[in-house]
């Protein structure tokens, strides 16, 4: 079993070399002047804003709803991690295991019902 994980470790190294090769090739083409080195017009390195000159700060405020979504995701994802071991040993547990699972998922449902009633799922 560890044999397999070690091979995945080797694959991690290969998978990093693969995109680095593409970026390095592109960089090497700039060195031999196939690719343009400096932008021909200084305006080209400005922050893009639909063709107009960039006004004000670019890292602007955004919708607060994104944080609600992130909090809900953390709530559910932590619970899901605990459900996988339950699913694996489920065969050995019978009805008691079923009701333990129902209780656990019930708490999950209460969480989403609360968020629903509070309007956290509405995207306005």
């Amino acid at each position: 079993m560890l044999h397999d994980y070690g091979q995945i470790g080797i694959l991690v190294i290969i998978s990093l070399i693969f995109p680095l090769g593409a970026v390095v090739t592109s960089w090497a083409l700039r060195m031999v002047n196939v690719r343009p080195d400096v932008p021909s017009n200084p305006v080209m390195t400005d922050t893009y804003e639909c063709g107009l000159r960039t006004e004000g700060p670019s890292l602007v405020q955004f919708n607060f709803r994104f944080y609600y979504i992130a909090l809900l995701f953390v709530l559910f994802d932590v619970e899901l991690v605990f459900l996988f071991p339950w699913a694996i040993i489920y065969d050995t547990m019978g009805w008691p295991g079923f009701f333990e699972g129902v209780g656990f998922i019930g708490i999950l449902c209460l969480g989403i019902l609360y968020a629903w009633r509070k309007g956290a799922l509405e995207w306005r």
Partner: peptide, 11 residues
């Protein structure tokens, strides 16, 4: 691969 790769000043 031979296209001009732009990096914004603020990036």
């Amino acid at each position: 691969i031979q296209k001009e790769a732009l990096t914004p000043k603020a990036a």
